[in-house]
Amino acid sequence: MKRSQFLTSLLAVPAALLFPSCNKTDSAGRKLTIAFMPKGKGNSYFIACEKGAREAVSELGVELLFDGPTNTDPAKQNEIVENWTTLGVDVIAVACENTEGISGALKKAQQKGIKVVTYDSDTTQDARSFFVNQATPQGIGEALMDEAARLCAEEGEFAIITATLTAANMNEWRKFIGSRLASKYPKMKLVDTKPCDDQKDKAQSEATNLISANPNLKCIMAICSPAVPGAAEAIKQAGKAGAVKLLGLGLPSENRAYLKEGVTQSVILWRVADLGYLAIQVANAVANKSLNPGDKTFKAGRLGELEIEGSSIILGKPFLFTKDNVDQFDF
């Protein structure tokens, strides 16, 4: 039949033209390629991270690949790592969503000679060479609990707003918040934990309900970044500014107004851009073999000499933003 012959030839032409002409070999003497993955794209925290990473990249003259999950599929990070592995990058720097879930994919990358470092949140120790540590889950959990206790004078009810009930890193923090609470603050009580789906408006509704359902509530702890301004707006609308304290993990830029109005008392965060900057510096040094297992210190560009604990490079203690110092930070 004429038409089918025509179609077959249509099919054959691109195949014949395209397939043999392909040339995928890498040219020699190319730049070092560092692949850098956030837990999720479109999240202001990791956008700040990326900014720091790009600064380090232009200092060091390496190539950066930035990609990450755009949805809530827990398998996405693994897939991106496996794709990078076959793409042939030199170093992978990743903020892990699943400690164990991603380790298999990272180990496979290591077997192919790709260096792996982690930042923000770690995988298992055998699946990476160094972890750029802004604060351990224990450090974050305890800092949040201690600050809540300070705001409430170590007494009374408090509630937590988290991103989703399945968010692994926040569940780690909640574990340490709970153990710190049990061991140090017997007069405080965690009355409820609510998810806000990482949405500000949902956090606002949840906070409104928490405040009015628990009349003795003294403090709300918002442990994902959109929850802090969301809960602040709820407290403000309820007219409970100061009566219900609010602290959380978030960016200064999203909370500046509420801090100054006295609705939000404290926001805890490290210099996020520095975290991205340091992760790239470490990735570069590991690839150049200027940073090796067993080293005690690491010189990280503009950040100076940093301490290494085991295989963790410590960025420094988290900052506490209050209405007095929030204007000094521009992220």
């Binding site: 809530t72 599929d73 693994n78 699943n98 164990e100 298999g104």
Partner: peptide, 11 residues
């Protein structure tokens, strides 16, 4: 994924 969790298959 070496793990089983409630968020498998989301979307």
């Amino acid at each position: 994924l070496h793990q089983a969790r409630a968020d498998a298959g989301m979307g």
